[in-house]
Design a protein around this nucleic acid. Sequence first.
DNA 1: GGCAGCGATACCTTCCGGGTATCGACCCTG
DNA 2: CAGGGTCGATACCCGGAAGGTATCGCTGCC
Lengths: 282, 282
Amino acid sequence: METRELRYFVAVAEELHFGRAAQRLGIAQPPLSRAIGQLERRLGVALLERTSRTVALTEAGSVLLVEGRAALDAVAAADRRTRRAALAVTGHSGLVLVTKAGASSELLAKLLDAYAAEPGAVAVEVHLCGIGEQERLLRDGRADVALLHRPFDSIAGFDTEELCTERQVVILPAGHPLTSRAHLRMADVTDIPGLPLPRWPDRDGTYPDGPGPQVRDPAQLYQLIALGRASAVLPESCRFQLRPDLAVVPVLDAPTVTTVIAWPPHSRSRPLAELIRTATRL
Amino acid sequence: METRELRYFVAVAEELHFGRAAQRLGIAQPPLSRAIGQLERRLGVALLERTSRTVALTEAGSVLLVEGRAALDAVAAADRRTRRAALAVTGHSGLVLVTKAGASSELLAKLLDAYAAEPGAVAVEVHLCGIGEQERLLRDGRADVALLHRPFDSIAGFDTEELCTERQVVILPAGHPLTSRAHLRMADVTDIPGLPLPRWPDRDGTYPDGPGPQVRDPAQLYQLIALGRASAVLPESCRFQLRPDLAVVPVLDAPTVTTVIAWPPHSRSRPLAELIRTATRL
DNA sequence: GGCAGCGATACCTTCCGGGTATCGACCCTG
DNA sequence: CAGGGTCGATACCCGGAAGGTATCGCTGCC
């Protein structure tokens, strides 16, 4: 199976439309139809159910979609990491670290400071990215290491070390009646009248159904809370970067959040090992 | 980067010889030279140092070797798992479980029994394989799940659950003077005169340098120990399958061995989840 | 110095990936 | 119910790339 075939299949499986997929791939539609047909014939497996109006994935097709994405990421990672290995020899190396915007910012600052003080430290480029993007970046070689947050982020397939664990707090508009309480329970915050919990996008960018405003980043969220249109349950470390018009109350029975440092298995770069060692010693 | 190019490069990088690599790939040598040259040009990276007598990997080349192998395994896994998903629909499904020959055999027996008793259990095909092979089988889709043993096996990149932890014992010929001791320390067993610890093959099938006989499987090892030519430190569960002409003595300070059940991340087959659940409840 | 081994190059052929044109099935609309 | 629009499949052609053979150039060795 060639990566070209996988790219083609993934495009069609995602679009569920040969024409759009072909456009996205920058080729015409007929070669795409042929390529998918060949792939199915060689695998001996039907991947797509086509009526002349709709395209749907078969069971095997959805397996190939997730496995194929993983395989393509692995190939892309091989490419990128090889290029970077060559650059590293000539001096331009540096590590790429990704984390969610607005999360664990003091931890990150401490880590970067501590690492920079190590002998032999290299430059660390920090990428702040959206929800669920880190995993992808780490998997396809665009990033070397990530700060992830269990249980929100999937750490499947990575090596990790735990860095710290923290409770969660609910964020409310300053002056809200509940802010006078010393602590709350999840049952108290799941349906505060007029302050629903927000909906975050799934990995594919769509929002789950349900009540609550759609938010894409912390700034949006804080704005909504300040306006008295939402509340949110977040790790308590967020209080250090909170606007003055917001208040926090601990939520006793919310799941604790563990910040972990994660990297692709088999990474054997010295600067990366050093960064991880620094992180675990914080 | 196409998988064909990766296969070619991995072959050359492993053989360090264009002629042999071409033979292994079933093509002539010139197209292979060209393909590698193109790959290097497209990456903008030198992968191999060629003098007209020798071929050696550059730094970037060895990165591409390990990353490329991983990527090829991921592609192979996509292929195999898609085929199996199609078979599963028509009824022939079943799980493939791999473990080292001779390890955790009662645990495995208990697991298979317990799982078979579950409603909705499917057939489990057990593959016993050589040292370090499990990882490969799990990674390229030939197996669905494995029993691995930390700290010997690498679990990098898999999801795992711990099943049990056990101490290690030294295995000696029955009647050896040390068998009268209630327990020993590693220092006592690393150089018993005439009974060196054996050498196991590395993942690539070669043996590390050093004293001690080369062994490939437990039967060989037991034979050597019975003959008074070696000793070995193994998890204590091996005592239940031991020949009567061998004896065991606990080794207090040997690292404990943890048996874990491991599976590829993102696996979402119901029978697999059921098997894992059964295993963790044993 | 000649020979053997190995990778690179030159050149040819074949095949496959990609393009355009068109068909056939289906849905929507007037 | 007819006709146009949409979408995937098919037919056919072309160019480029992958693979083969022949050969060169370098190098280490007897």
